[in-house]
Write a protein that binds this DNA or RNA. Structure first.
Lengths: 237, 237
DNA sequence: CGGTCACTTGATCGTCTTCAATACCAGTGG
DNA sequence: CCACTGGTATTGAAGACGATCAAGTGACCG
């Protein structure tokens, strides 16, 4: 991970997508004054699991995985982050999770105390953060339903729908999905093994619901059927 | 569910435990002005799943389960709430979950818009809500690890530890736990069936880790061993 | 080419589920 | 007092889904 440099908030391409849009353009220097930017290469750690929670982070380029792990190596990925995503809410004195770069990432960080102070001056920022937290909580609950009650097929379908719906209004699916993460990451996100992920993908391909032209690309040939699978509106076995 | 009555915030016994403690005593009438209280009997719905999210809630007596469900009846309990717990954060325009009373409950509710306005005037309240959200997010991530990666035995152990640690400083376990919820609720919380919950409890009893003197009461005879199981520090099978 | 790495496919195994029977308890009425 | 009922929990036997173990494929790269 490279050392932190001053953040050029006023030139940030992802300001519109991120929590920073709660700050008026003329106040951006307040933000830039407390922010720093850095980069990390694929596989590098951004937040070590259980580290003292001194900063919030904002991803500006690339993708990251958030995870919790167990002493014997079992790992659960709790979410993925892309450009514009805010990290670090799920923390008290220490981060309840870890974060690693999936590909080359760029991000900025804010000292927690400084950002909390800024929230007092700019209430819109606090409201924005609460909105982000509410959104993440709802996503976490959906993921709990997936992990606790859905079959492998339903998990994969849910995952694909989620990817295809990313950054679009609800229900408007992309025709195809380019995955940033490996099969191992998908497995650890869905509570499965890589073998089951692989097998289930080929099963869906044989059923004509998807196509796998390249290893990182998935074409949704039958979005509605996938959606039915994902929500459990299909008879099981 | 009984109709809503005015809230006597200044006499509330659970104010100290709840988000309402962010409001100074002399400003409590601001809170009382927007709040209403109601009761619900065991099994009754407090928040219908997917209903328009017009209110926040605060439980003052009894216990509730929060859940998400699927069209064929599969259900995942995402959490339990007790006196002092705040409900309704995981919502945008509609609640992402439902809430039902486990036993007789009493609660108050606040119109979202009014509470958001109050947050502007009293920044401490907004900070408190963000803190609650952060705490719930961390709990949700821990639950994802449980649901995605832990064995039945580890799930039950984690659950018992969680119950015994409820409302205490981390690591200080109660010697015994009185469960408010049924085996079905436990199963739906842990992503198991009632049969597996029952079998695993008797297994832990035979191993000498717990005792089951009454159906709703569990004595932790070997807390440290349970803790090792819960965190995965025990060799599997 | 030989090597590695990620993914896929196959065969077998085990954990948890499913289906079914039984136990237990509180409430009701004979 | 005891039989009957309904709900909840426990226990048993059989089965299925996904995990594990193992081999094979293909891409990339030195």
């Amino acid at each position: 991970m490279q050392p932190f440099a001053p953040a050029p908030c006023s030139q940030c391409a992802h300001r519109a997508d991120s929590v920073c849009n709660a700050i008026a353009p003329e106040d951006l220097d307040l933000l830039a004054r407390i922010a720093g930017t850095a980069r990390a290469g694929a596989g590098e750690s951004i937040i070590p699991e259980g580290a003292p929670a001194a900063y919030f982070f904002n991803l500006t380029e690339g993708h990251a995985r958030l995870f919790k792990s167990m002493p014997d190596g079992r790992r659960q990925i709790t979410g993925f982050a892309g450009p514009g995503d805010f990290l670090g809410l799920a923390a008290s004195s220490r981060y309840a999770f870890g974060a690693e770069a999936i590909d080359a990432v760029q991000f900025c960080r804010f000292p927690r105390a400084a950002l909390e102070t800024l929230c007092r001056d700019r209430p819109a920022l606090g409201e924005r953060l609460l909105g982000v937290a509410a959104h993440e909580l709802a996503a976490a609950q959906a993921q709990m339903l997936l992990l606790g009650r859905k079959t492998a097929e339903e998990r994969i379908a849910s995952f694909l729908i989620r990817c295809a719906n990313d950054g679009r209004p609800c229900g408007h699916l992309a025709a195809d999905v380019t995955l940033a993460m490996s099969r191992t990451d998908i497995a650890d996100y869905l509570g499965l093994t890589i073998e089951t992920v692989s097998r289930t993908l080929t099963k869906l391909r044989r059923q004509g619901l998807i196509d796998l032209p390249e290893i990182q690309r998935i074409v949704l040939t039958d979005g509605p059927a996938l959606m039915r699978l994902a929500t459990g509106r299909t008879e099981r076995h």
